[in-house]
Amino acid sequence: MLSINDLHARVEDTTILKGLDLEIKPGEVHAIMGPNGAGKSTLGYVLSGRDGYEVESGSVEMNGKDLLDMEVEERAQAGIFLAFQYPVEIPGVSNMEFMKESVNAIREARGENALSSAEFLKKAKDACKQVELPLDFLKRGVNEGFSGGEKKRNEIMQLIMLEPKLAILDESDSGLDVDALQVVAKGVNSQRDGERSFIVVTHYQRLLDYIQPDYVHIISNGKIVKSGGPELAKEVEASGYAWLAEAEGVDA
């Protein structure tokens, strides 16, 4: 469903992705691991189309369409979802309003009818339950005064609401204790339905104990340097990323 070919991208004057290739089929979960600064988060931003992340060369196709040619919101409407590492606050806009606008914008783009208030509310309540957020979170401002863990769970709540085709989780485990991590993982796993694909970006193997990937890719210096199954994550856990530096003369 997604095919990334020889992708080069930069932020300001620094080229960060230097020839990245990745092929994702429907229903697959791909974990992207790597040292800080390797380009893990950049990949998520480039795929979602964030301003300031400039593609120098290469291509990204999603279900046969040129993803790079689309606006940010068009990509979202086409089914790309990014769970943010640091979700931002929108004071005064309730989670409920935000999600309602969002769900309906995406439905509209897909030629579906807007949800009625009752339908929407039911969906929102279910999503909250799945990530163990109290219902009053729907009334609170988006991320306004949320703890780190609450923000992360709120991202997964949105994932559940928006039913994307490809969900990119950008370090959704960072800053979480084990209990919160399990909640996040449970929420994500509930969305694995054999069709929806995932890119799970993480620094640590820990998250992958709870979200079992089909493939693990190690990214270093802007490209994938090693790919394998879940066992690769264990290797990294045991030996860290130092071997990359030895293997490639790259700073880990």
Partner: peptide
């Protein structure tokens, strides 16, 4: 109105105008 806020809204499928008007409406709620 930060780039981060706009990006979040657009990543959730809202066009930029809708995003700004929602952020502004939130700001005015009181």
């Amino acid at each position: 109105v930060s780039d981060d806020q706009l990006f979040l809204c657009r990543q959730r499928g809202l066009d930029p105008e809708k995003a700004v008007s929602m952020i502004v409406n939130g700001f005015c709620k009181e």
